[in-house]
């Protein structure tokens, strides 16, 4: 399966998320901007939950390209210590069990869970004791 966009994940197995490091300031951003001012860098696969919400209604199409059938999903901000906080899905956890600060690990998921050939989007799942 491929990522929803080129250059989002590294080519290794399992993949890591690719951020961009500002050559002048060292600031790390995600995704890596298409600019010579940024150098692509693999981001840490481990992080902690910084904040989140649950998307309870189907976003408008366009631009949303997810499946017609909608089930709520978690929008998470995940802190990758010393690097950057990234926005991604949070999976494999019940909504009521989500806790800010919980340890997470990178785990890309299909945009459409029921389509075998669906593109992958960035996501995290509980890691360690929380898994």
């Amino acid at each position: 399966m491929r990522a929803i966009a080129d250059g989002l994940f590294t080519d290794e197995t399992p993949p890591r998320l690719v951020g961009g490091c500002d050559r002048a300031t060292g600031r790390v951003v995600f995704p890596c901007p298409d600019s010579s001012n940024y150098e692509a860098m693999p981001l840490s696969s481990d992080g902690v939950l910084w904040s989140y919400t649950v998307q309870r209604f189907r976003p408008k199409t366009p631009p949303y390209a997810g499946p017609e059938a909608f089930a709520p999903w978690i929008v998470a901000y995940v802190e990758l210590p010393g690097q950057v906080i990234v926005e991604a899905r949070l999976v494999d956890v019940a909504f009521e069990d989500v806790k800010i600060g919980m340890p997470l690990r990178f785990k890309p998921v299909p945009l459409d869970p029921d389509a075998p050939d669906s593109v992958l989007i960035p996501a995290y799942a509980p890691a360690g004791d929380a898994a």
């Binding site: 919400t53 631009p63 390209a65 997810g66 929008v75």
Partner: peptide
Amino acid sequence: DWYGDAGYMVTTQ
């Protein structure tokens, strides 16, 4: 574009 495709162009989030 992928950011919108994935469902994040929603201010309420």
